[in-house]
């Protein structure tokens, strides 16, 4: 039989938990509760009153084909940016782990982008990708009309995926590198002595042992890409052209804060919350099974 260390008194437990519970309540349950309430009412922004409307906010949302398009684009964005950010970070981390020449410098440099505020990064990317003034202007001079995120929805989507992933590569890189360095050197050296090459060692030893990190980052990346993209969108595309980059979270921001449609925005955030919870559930239920922690 196992023995657990236990506190004798319940009130001590309650007391020690109280600050955390209070924080979670104030910054999560309370706002989420208010959003849930607003989602079922029509709220006047200046607080003049609200009327209960049942599921009206949700039914009108689900009846709007543009809303479903926004959901679709959000999923495309989440998958593409997570793959790009994780893939790039993994490659960089693998090479950094091999301690190629100068790795100490670029290990530090690769962490910096995460410290750059999203809007600042977005301003830089807007310039880089501007079809008439930026770096891409040269490309357009050679092939006119090749690149124009102001007119082409696809170009605009590519732009925000790259701008968003650029920032997240650093975050993923730190975790991948830490994960790789936790793998016992002896395993890799033994494989090397057995004659397996660099790629073979990566495939057979490092990547399988890295799966817990990959899983963790997958959950974090997908969750964050659902909720964290609006700073970049607001600066670069404002959801355009013609709604091509109007992701769910940006639509919530625009409808709620700019359009003053508090109830519509509240209903949308409930949908987004449920979607993120469902995706996280699926990942834990089905993906985690394939992961070996030991």
């Amino acid at each position: 039989m196992e023995h657990h260390a236990q506190f004798r008194t319940r009130w001590l437990v309650a007391l020690l938990l109280a600050p955390q519970v209070l924080l979670v309540f104030t910054f999560f349950y309370w706002p989420a509760g208010a959003a849930l309430f607003w989602a079922f009412t029509l709220e006047q922004p200046w607080g003049g009153g609200n009327a209960f409307v049942g599921f009206d906010n949700f039914t009108s949302l689900f009846a709007d084909s543009f809303y479903w398009a926004s959901v679709g684009r959000t999923i495309v964005f989440a998958l593409a940016s997570s793959c790009l950010a994780m893939g790039m970070a993994l490659v960089l981390a693998l090479f950094c782990d091999r301690q190629l020449r100068g790795y100490a410098y670029y290990r530090t440099a690769l962490i910096w982008p995460y410290a750059v505020a999203a809007p600042a990064a977005a301003v830089a990317f807007r310039y880089v990708f501007a079809p008439e003034a930026g770096v891409f202007a040269g490309l357009n001079a050679m092939y006119p009309g090749l690149w124009n995120p102001a007119m082409s929805g696809t170009d605009a989507m590519i732009m925000i995926i790259i701008a968003y992933s650029w920032k997240f590569i650093s975050y993923n890189f730190i975790f991948f590198l830490a994960g790789l360095q936790a793998i016992p050197r002896s395993l890799i050296e033994a494989a090397a002595m057995d004659g397996s090459g660099v790629l073979r060692r990566m495939r057979d030893i490092q990547l399988p042992l890295l799966t817990p990190t990959v899983f963790f980052l997958l959950v974090i990346n997908i969750t964050d890409s659902f909720v964290d993209s609006f700073g970049i969108i607001d600066i670069t595309t404002e959801g355009g052209p013609a709604k091509a980059t109007n992701l769910m979270v940006y639509k919530i921001y625009f409808d709620g804060f700019k359009g003053l449609d508090y109830s519509g925005a509240a209903a949308q955030s409930i949908v987004l919350m449920v979607l993120v919870m469902a995706l996280t559930f699926v990942q834990f239920r089905y993906v985690e099974r394939k992961i070996h922690y030991k």
């Binding site: 007119m151 082409s152 355009g240 052209p241 013609a242 709604k243 700019k258 359009g259 003053l260 449609d261």
Partner: peptide, 22 residues
């Protein structure tokens, strides 16, 4: 009411028109 949203819808439509998708 909601004039900012209406302006946005109009801009979205204009973007689609000038990009030849509508």
């Amino acid at each position: 009411g909601g004039f900012l949203l209406i302006r946005k819808e109009t801009q979205d439509a204009l973007q689609a028109i000038f990009a030849n998708s509508m």
